[in-house]
Nucleic acid binder design. Sequence first.
DNA 1: CGTATAGTTGATTAGTATCAACGCTAGTGG
DNA 2: CCACTAGCGTTGATACTAATCAACTATACG
Lengths: 249, 249
Amino acid sequence: MNVVPPPDVDAPAATREPPELCRACGSSRRLAFCAGLSRDEIRQLSSLRSGLNLPAGTPVFREGDPAEWVYSVSTGALKLYKLLSDGRRQIVCFLFPGDLFGLGSDDGYAYTAETLVPTQICRFSQRKLETFRGATPRLERRIFAMTLHDLLAAQEQMLLLGRKTAREKVASFVLDLSRRATLRGLPENPVTLPMSRADIADYLGLTIETVSRIFSHLKRAKLIELPDSSRVILLDLPQLEMLAEGLPS
Amino acid sequence: MNVVPPPDVDAPAATREPPELCRACGSSRRLAFCAGLSRDEIRQLSSLRSGLNLPAGTPVFREGDPAEWVYSVSTGALKLYKLLSDGRRQIVCFLFPGDLFGLGSDDGYAYTAETLVPTQICRFSQRKLETFRGATPRLERRIFAMTLHDLLAAQEQMLLLGRKTAREKVASFVLDLSRRATLRGLPENPVTLPMSRADIADYLGLTIETVSRIFSHLKRAKLIELPDSSRVILLDLPQLEMLAEGLPS
DNA sequence: CGTATAGTTGATTAGTATCAACGCTAGTGG
DNA sequence: CCACTAGCGTTGATACTAATCAACTATACG
């Protein structure tokens, strides 16, 4: 969600060092929604903030809960998902540091948010943040830009869900994780999968068996390697990109 | 796209009369992005506006084109779609009067926009609108709310594409069209389908044959009626809703 | 009236789901 | 420290939903 190239204010591009953490949101200033704010604005914003430290597998809120808070990811990772009454699940988004979630939704959150690994997030009262946003055009624009980015990403995911084959879906998925990792200053290659096969399946509209089979298939085709089940090495980027876009093979 | 309940400023709820058309955007004031603006703001905004009158099946812009303009639908209907290189297509959204499109996307439009029927739209220079938005917080908020609404709708569509069966998809689709029609002040029931079966298929991640079969199936099950191929009568709303949510049948 | 296009229906195929068994890894307790 | 167990992931056999291929019908258009 919302990995928008931030308004270039600080930003020494993608450095390998753990970037400075923001007082207002606890995550990398480059990525967070408070990127580009003044010292003073950061101070004000941080006074509205409260931090949470959650173990893996903890729900932050559930679909339908009254939407009191807006959250920003400081460290760790989460999934956002929607359920059908018989338990079928669609993960609409994986979240990483800097990402914002829980915005909007007058009639309750539209999805459940749950941590994948031990995770630090911070939250702001929806109401207070609203007021602050009104007084801080740059923040308003930044949050808008991130939301718009999420919308475009959601449309790309609709293309994936509606029209790509299982192999194309999995290739797209690992490439996307890799790209997002580089945006956070991590190496593009050994891609870490903080989520289970079941989560990947529910994100791609597949079953765990199919996801597993496709991983094996891509491994046999020498496009990826799997040192262990939660790490992927992309051996042939160009080929994977072709596959992800539906070109030959 | 973005059928957000507008800030109640004028708004005699959902009346049956053709609602007054806005000088700024050419569509119903209740729904458009300029809802809630002052007389003076409307005047300013309308000076930025230029109107277009397009026949059915006309592309407004294509995926990848430089994103110069932002558009608002006055009358008619459009589809937004993305393509894979081999021609597979995913329609990400159908648009009706009041809806906004073409926002954002620094590296070109993320989708192609094409009219379904004879359509009036108006457009604003992305750059000029940006400036005006900066000076008009209420407009900024309104556009943000519409974008956020689109994001939530996109997530709902991800659930549909990833996890619903063909029958559930079609039931969800006709119900959604019906609901959106009522928001525009139209009757909930004889639902008009301004799009072809191919469009419906590309929106739901199905083939035209499957869409056609499911329509026939729902007809035999007495859940709908098809007076002609572009009109649906919903005979059993509760049952259709059950079906759309994945409950028994 | 004839032709082209959109939509429907039928027969068959294919891709992915489902059901089932098995292996691996990590955590537990003896 | 090592066997035991539970859960996750992988692999195989089969089933099923929706896609594909094909024919036909209805509707719109010249």
